[in-house]
Nucleic acid binder design. Sequence first.
DNA 1: TTGCAAACCTATTAGTAAATAAGTAGTTTC
DNA 2: GAAACTACTTATTTACTAATAGGTTTGCAA
Lengths: 185, 185
Amino acid sequence: MATSTRETIIQLGDDLLRKDGFNAFSYADISKPLGVKNAAVHYHFPSKQDLAETIAIWHVDVFDRFVQKTATKPPLDRLRTFLNFYHSIHLSGKVCIIGAFATDWNSLNPNVHEKVKAFTESVVNWLSVLVQEGRDMGHIHTKHNPRTTALRILTSIFAATQLARITGDDDFSLVKNSLLDELCS
Amino acid sequence: MATSTRETIIQLGDDLLRKDGFNAFSYADISKPLGVKNAAVHYHFPSKQDLAETIAIWHVDVFDRFVQKTATKPPLDRLRTFLNFYHSIHLSGKVCIIGAFATDWNSLNPNVHEKVKAFTESVVNWLSVLVQEGRDMGHIHTKHNPRTTALRILTSIFAATQLARITGDDDFSLVKNSLLDELCS
DNA sequence: TTGCAAACCTATTAGTAAATAAGTAGTTTC
DNA sequence: GAAACTACTTATTTACTAATAGGTTTGCAA
């Protein structure tokens, strides 16, 4: 399946958004590596907000596929896959899209906010169900309610992708491993 | 004590950095509310990187004062004060400076990196000592080593200031309260 | 073959950005 | 009281930004 220009723009935009931030990249940063002119990017995404909105929607789609693909796995396996996914985010020099959108929140319009909210809520809900199921099966141990535990997992791991930029790789692993350690015991 | 122009610039810059991000504000956003011209800001901070560097150093100073002021308190009180401080960050529409710097990391030069690293490390160390002392006194319970627990506290609470922008105030409180709940029990 | 839409390109605009040079008023220092 | 320093201002430069108008090419469909 040949990747369309439109899809490449989304992926380049997502990369730039998570590596440098929404206000740190321009359409030129997308058009140049793509080998097209500035206006071509505007043809697909008239405004930068449109691009941000599409990136948010794209993450909903990617996450939905992730959810479906891992649906049959036991909770703890799903959690491990989730944390490994964040590990790859960290290793590729990016940060979690939720944190990227959150820190640039005031630069984004209500349409983008709406999509980011939907995406974030779906991740939190997925984690909550995971925790609930894991607890029911006796594989996950937590004294908090499922949403709270979900929030603690999500905040810890997405902040770890940020913090590790400052303090180094080891701290990412410390956070990641401690999460598994804690919930399994 | 009259606040100097220089200090006001630092505080305005810090506010803008944590509300909107490093690339989202300009010198005009500082000079206008200050009632001076653009060049006056450049007089005090020739480049934006200089300003960012000074903001990082300023946070080291503020944190040092915080550490000294709370030095005599028992560990759990110190932790509560620390978390309340983050609550006020959240309520004022800002995010933690560590997260702000982290997501804008690639826009900042090595001098800024150095100062941010020093600040972050001092926060992690302070939390590590707090955890160690709390455990020795039997007030804090954790199965991880002090640095790991410190990282878990820091990542959870600073990501909460970001996440709550998306999902709302309640989630900030859930994270904050769960941290105290967990470490006290 | 004509018509038309998709996917570009050329060229431009209006605005904003960081940064600097040169000048000035007020204050301090020797 | 002259020199020097502080804290600005005016004015300008260079560069980049998002965004748009209008033209071109290509392929497909009627």
